[in-house]
Simulated assay, not measured.
Amino acid sequence: MNLQTNLLFILLLLLSVVAQCIFGNFPFAFFAFPLDVLLALIWMGGMGYVYKEKRSSRFVRLWLSPQCTYWTLGWLLTGCLVIGLFPQLSAQEIAGKSGIFVRLGCYHFTSSWIFVVGLFGLLTHLGMITLRRAFLPGRNRWRFVLNHAGLWLALFAGFIGSAEEQTLRMPVFRTSPSNEAFTEQGTRVYLPKSLQLITFTVEHYPNGSPRHYFADISIDGKPAHLEVNHPYAASWAEDYYLTSYDVQSSQPQYCVVQIVREPLKFLMWLGIVMMLCGSCLLFLAGPDRQKALSSEVDASC
């Protein structure tokens, strides 16, 4: 079983590298709603079916094996290491670079085939072990299920939500309202609402460099206050961030607002709440008494 697991993940790794080199980054936009929801339902239904009906098959045992845990966690940790070592750039910035690391998607690794395939493997493995524990009897199974299902849901929302997530940058002017924004690829997008800068304040250090800045803007006539690292929540899935401003003028005539749309953000939060509930049950219930008793018997023998 260990050899088969190793061969499977080596094959997946090689295929993901080849796909990355040939096709470039993973086409999240292609899997936008409703295709992402349909594929997600097929994926979850498939995991439930194969575990319930084909539990003793070699395929299911492979995805439940400890070797699968080592591979999926190692793949994810390696991906996080790549993200930490390489600056994550926009599509326009990457266009001016070349080399093997660009071909492998290291400068925008979360959207590379290598990272996506690794995360898909981790989610499949995590879903299978969660199903296995959910079908086993025992009072303490729910804390395991809540912890692992919550982690699965948080990762799943980030994975599937990437197809719907959108980041826009918009110059907001003092002189007139505007609804023209730009994607990370530089494509012009027209919003259904207009933004206009009302006031802008910059606080400086004694040496004259900017220390803090904030802006009051109008969103279709509705006032909104923006500060650095303090986004304005326009809706449950849309946040506005203040990212830059007109540094050439003593009285800035415009600021740059970043608009981030994350439709599955609250699904991710639900997963985090489930993990917190599972951790509370773990603390309140204590260790599994049956396992502790078995350990004591083994020790006495």
Rank of each mutant, 00 (worst) to 15 (best):
M1I: 09
M1P: 04
N2D: 12
Q4N: 10
N6F: 04
L8D: 08
F9N: 07
F9L: 05
V18M: 11
I22V: 15
F23M: 13
F26Q: 12
F28M: 05
F31A: 07
A32P: 01
F33H: 02
L39E: 08
A40N: 13
L41C: 13
I42P: 07
I42N: 11
W43F: 15
W43T: 13
M44V: 15
M44F: 14
M44G: 14
G45M: 06
G46N: 14
G46R: 14
M47G: 13
M47H: 05
Y49W: 15
Y49G: 03
V50C: 08
K52T: 08
F59P: 00
V60G: 06
L62W: 01
L62K: 02
L62Q: 03
W63Y: 05
L64P: 13
L64G: 13
S65P: 06
P66L: 05
P66K: 02
Q67S: 14
G74C: 06
G84S: 10
L85H: 09
P87C: 03
Q88D: 10
L89T: 02
A91T: 11
E93I: 07
A95D: 10
A95C: 03
G96S: 06
G96A: 06
F101Y: 13
V102D: 09
R103A: 13
R103C: 03
L104S: 04
G105A: 01
C106L: 05
F109R: 05
S111M: 08
S112M: 00
I114Y: 04
F115T: 06
G118Y: 10
F120P: 00
G121R: 04
L123A: 02
L126F: 04
L126T: 12
G127F: 10
I129L: 12
T130I: 04
T130Y: 00
L131F: 05
A134C: 08
F135L: 07
F135C: 02
L136M: 11
L136F: 05
G138S: 03
F144V: 10
V145S: 06
H148V: 04
L153P: 01
A154W: 09
A157E: 05
F159P: 01
I160K: 09
G161Y: 09
G161M: 05
S162P: 02
S162T: 09
E164A: 11
E165W: 03
Q166D: 04
R169P: 00
M170H: 02
S178D: 03
G186W: 10
L191F: 13
S194Y: 07
L195G: 01
L195F: 15
Q196F: 03
Q196N: 02
Q196K: 12
I198K: 14
V202F: 02
P210C: 00
Y213T: 00
I217L: 03
I217F: 03
D220V: 01
A224F: 01
E227W: 00
V228S: 04
N229S: 11
Y232C: 03
A234Y: 13
W236A: 14
A237E: 10
D239R: 02
D239N: 02
Y240S: 08
T243F: 05
Q251G: 00
Q253W: 01
C255I: 15
I259M: 09
P263N: 15
L264N: 10
F266A: 12
I272V: 15
S279H: 09
C280D: 00
F283P: 00
G286S: 09
G286M: 09
D288Y: 04
L293D: 15
S295P: 01
V297L: 08
S300F: 07
C301F: 14
C301G: 11
